[in-house]
């Protein structure tokens, strides 16, 4: 809830001239880079170790994942349009775009749930191989981040409906937007490194 914490005395003037909350958010995102880098590196180490389970190229459904990747990418557009709306003080339109973003996020998560279910049916569970462990934990943590983002977006919409978004509405939307875009670019990397780059198998 870093985005909600406001300290007195600091908003008018900070030593660097940048906003406290925004600085904190970027520091947090810098930290998250290491988080996902650890998970992705684990995946890269293990992606060929499939034992008797399915290999990546056998199990991935590239057309399906391409569509859900596209959906997530476009949710970044709706997010940034929501920010544009609140810059124009148009809270109604902002709510529309925020809801659109949340819905696109839910479509993505729905796709991930479908994907996981299919994989389990095809015989790839968390404990099937080191590849499956690395895959599920990496994409699962990404999905958890998207889910948190959806909750934050819906909270913003509710706050706006109850008239509690202002003051500081622009900043709240901007901070959650930064988080959302970050989660999106992590998926840009995952889509390429996990799904598209071929393995030995």
């Amino acid at each position: 809830m870093a985005t909600q914490d406001i300290v007195l005395d600091t908003q008018e003037h900070t030593s660097t001239g940048v906003d406290n909350v925004k600085l904190a958010m970027w520091a947090f995102l810098g930290s998250e880079c290491l988080f996902f880098a650890s998970l992705i590196s684990t995946y890269l180490l293990y992606r060929n170790d499939v034992l008797s389970g399915p290999t990546p190229s056998e199990i991935y459904d590239i057309p399906f994942t391409s569509v859900s990747s596209f959906v997530l990418l476009m949710s970044s557009l709706t997010m940034v349009l929501a920010l544009g709306a609140i810059h124009r003080k148009d809270e109604r339109q902002m709510r529309v775009w925020l809801l659109a973003t949340a819905v696109l996020g839910m479509v993505f998560i729905g796709g991930q749930i479908y994907e996981f279910t299919t994989f389990v049916e095809e015989g790839m569970k968390l404990d099937t191989s080191t590849f499956s462990s690395a895959f599920f934990v990496l994409t699962g943590f990404h999905g958890a981040h998207v889910t948190v983002g959806i909750l934050l977006l819906l909270t913003l919409v509710m706050m706006s409906l109850f008239g509690r978004l202002s003051p500081g509405a622009e900043r709240k939307v901007e901070m959650i937007g930064l988080y959302w875009h970050f989660v999106d670019i992590v998926w840009v990397v995952i889509f390429t490194v996990v799904y598209l780059i071929p393995t030995n198998g």
């Binding site: 925004k22 600085l23 970027w26 520091a27 995102l29 810098g30 998250e32 880079c33 290491l34």
Partner: peptide, 13 residues
Amino acid sequence: VFRMLFLTGIITA
């Protein structure tokens, strides 16, 4: 400063 924080994370990683 934002770019630097983000880049530090990426480069370290």
